[in-house]
Design a protein around this nucleic acid. Structure first.
Ligand SMILES: NC(=O)c1ccc[n+]([C@@H]2O[C@H](COP(=O)([O-])OP(=O)(O)OC[C@H]3O[C@@H](n4cnc5c(N)ncnc54)[C@H](O)[C@@H]3O)[C@@H](O)[C@H]2O)c1
Ligand SMILES: NC(=O)c1ccc[n+]([C@@H]2O[C@H](COP(=O)([O-])OP(=O)(O)OC[C@H]3O[C@@H](n4cnc5c(N)ncnc54)[C@H](O)[C@@H]3O)[C@@H](O)[C@H]2O)c1
Lengths: 253, 253
DNA sequence: ATGTCTTTGTGAACGCGTGCACAAAGATTG
DNA sequence: CAATCTTTGTGCACGCGTTCACAAAGACAT
């Protein structure tokens, strides 16, 4: 999450830990697969393996939802699917608006995996006048001038930002002003939002950089040298990159 | 502080907390922006605001890298950019292979934000024979039959999987067998990999579901309804049968 | 019923991450 | 050189999340 979550409001009654919430979709996915195979029940051990987590963790997670299991047997798959879906709010339809229909925005619009989870692409919005009216994934792109009306008319409360980083904050502000209270941000920018608005970010470059960190460490493992500089490369150590070079490889001392 | 690492957990030579590693790219981005504006130095407070984190956290993060600041002044922007880049392994070029050139894979291939961060799209791989040779983002798509050779020839150690979920594990296995040790997975599947291979996943549906959870909570804040505690519960969880013809609720090992 | 066997639900311990608060370090000024 | 001011680096305490380990709950067999 990008915004500073200062404190958790004392709504501790329904207090499901954030870490647990983040895993519920994972369980749901595994359970859905079992459901499609008509598996009636599943043990915490099996389900944990399928979801890629520790079984004790899974049981504790479920304990926050209530006691839905049967000792000696396991969990009823169908029932658990329903309970988690309800907890996540997936029993209702969530209209989503995507702003910035470029490479990524178009890919998202074309992605069928959203609808199957209760999310519906209700509107595509772009600032480019040339795109207005153009159908993408069967939906006509609308112009940002009408953003406020589009959000209101469709009852959109979840917005997806796939504009260039420079426009993200402005788009965010407009979305929030129009009534959006949840934002999924793909632009590499820190968004500031008022209290009560949730922001989640997806940053591919950050993911790659984290992988690179560990990759470098793995590579340097062999050369048991404390000092670094040029870890062993695999094959062709390819020269410089093409377009730009935004980082100075010099040390200012 | 001259010698910060008083303890040495043996397994970690330069034990940088994972949470810190995940924030370094965030700092780097903010610092790069400052660098482009030719700002010479920055205080932890300013930089923290720009990165959207707590200033104490930022200082502690930097303390793991060493003492790069000057008290009473702040941090030298250029120097810090270099240090973080080096720590993340971005002073070298990382050839990346993308497998599964569909909607998402093509969008990633077209994305220019990777190159500027030290990552280079070295190869695009797809199983569709019709796509072989087709240029995407100026790079000819290659067939999966040659996956092993492509990875080896280009010295790829980081792979990106954007295939349908059903193919992800198989593609993953082939990548690992070919020498890839870091994987960024966009397919909604749990990948199992041998020890020493890092996997990071990006799952948009999960992000939306987490947003939906909070959204639902926000909506239900007003109407603190009654139903939350005990949903329609069946008397006997077991012995239950599906709505249509299914198998008895047996649960053998 | 009684006993055995399986699996849940959770108390408790532990480790990691976060943020406060402040002494120390160095710049800056007089 | 001494006083003052700014900002770093970090000791410390706290809370969250993870994991272990086990008693209790229920299914199933006899
Ligand atoms: N494509 C990727 O794989 C990828 C990967 C990582 C991050 N990102 C980020 O995602 C965002 C989109 O990437 P992209 O490759 O699709 O870029 P893109 O240039 O292809 O698309 C951006 C779109 O946003 C529109 N736009 C610009 N300003 C706007 C505004 N104020 N309001 C509404 N629409 C506006 C443009 O008309 C364009 O259609 C960027 O911030 C990028 O950094 C993309
Ligand atoms: N498009 C999105 O916005 C989006 C969002 C969330 C998740 N995803 C996930 O990302 C993945 C790709 O999505 P997409 O929309 O690009 O799908 P897509 O169908 O457009 O593309 C998939 C590509 O993978 C190729 N492929 C299939 N099997 C392969 C194999 N064994 N080896 C190599 N290539 C193979 C196909 O030929 C196709 O080109 C899916 O797993 C999807 O669930 C996509």
């Amino acid at each position: 999450m990008a915004t500073g979550r200062t404190h958790r409001p004392a709504t501790r009654s329904r207090g499901i830990p954030e870490a647990t919430v983040a895993r519920l979709p994972l369980y749901l996915r595994a359970l859905t697969a079992l459901s499609e195979r008509s598996v009636p029940t599943v043990s915490s051990e099996e389900l944990a393996t399928a979801a890629g987590v520790n079984s004790a963790k899974l049981r504790k997670d479920f304990s926050y939802l209530g006691s839905y299991g049967t000792r000696g047997v396991g969990y009823d798959v169908e029932y658990l699917v329903y309970q988690i879906s309800r907890e996540l709010g997936l029993t209702q339809d969530w209209p989503v608006a995507i702003v910035g229909i470029g490479n990524l925005g178009a890919a998202l619009a074309n992605y069928g995996g959203f609808a199957s989870r209760g999310f519906r692409v209700a509107a595509l919005i772009d600032a480019d006048p040339a795109m207005a009216g153009t159908p993408v994934a069967g939906i006509a792109v609308q112009h940002t001038d009408d953003l406020d009306r589009i959000i209101s008319d469709n009852g959109v409360s979840i917005g997806v930002i796939t504009t260039p980083p420079g426009a993200a904050q402005q788009v965010c502000d407009r979305l929030v002003a129009a009534g959006v209270t949840s934002i999924l941000n793909f632009a590499p920018t820190v968004l500031s939002v008022p209290e009560g608005v949730d922001v989640r970010k997806v940053d591919l470059s950050i993911e790659l950089q984290i992988l690179a960190f560990h990759e470098q460490r793995k590579a340097g493992e062999d050369a048991t040298a404390e000092d670094e500089g040029a870890p062993p490369m695999r094959a062709t150590p390819t020269g410089r990159k093409g377009p730009d070079g935004d980082m100075p490889a010099v040390m200012p001392a």
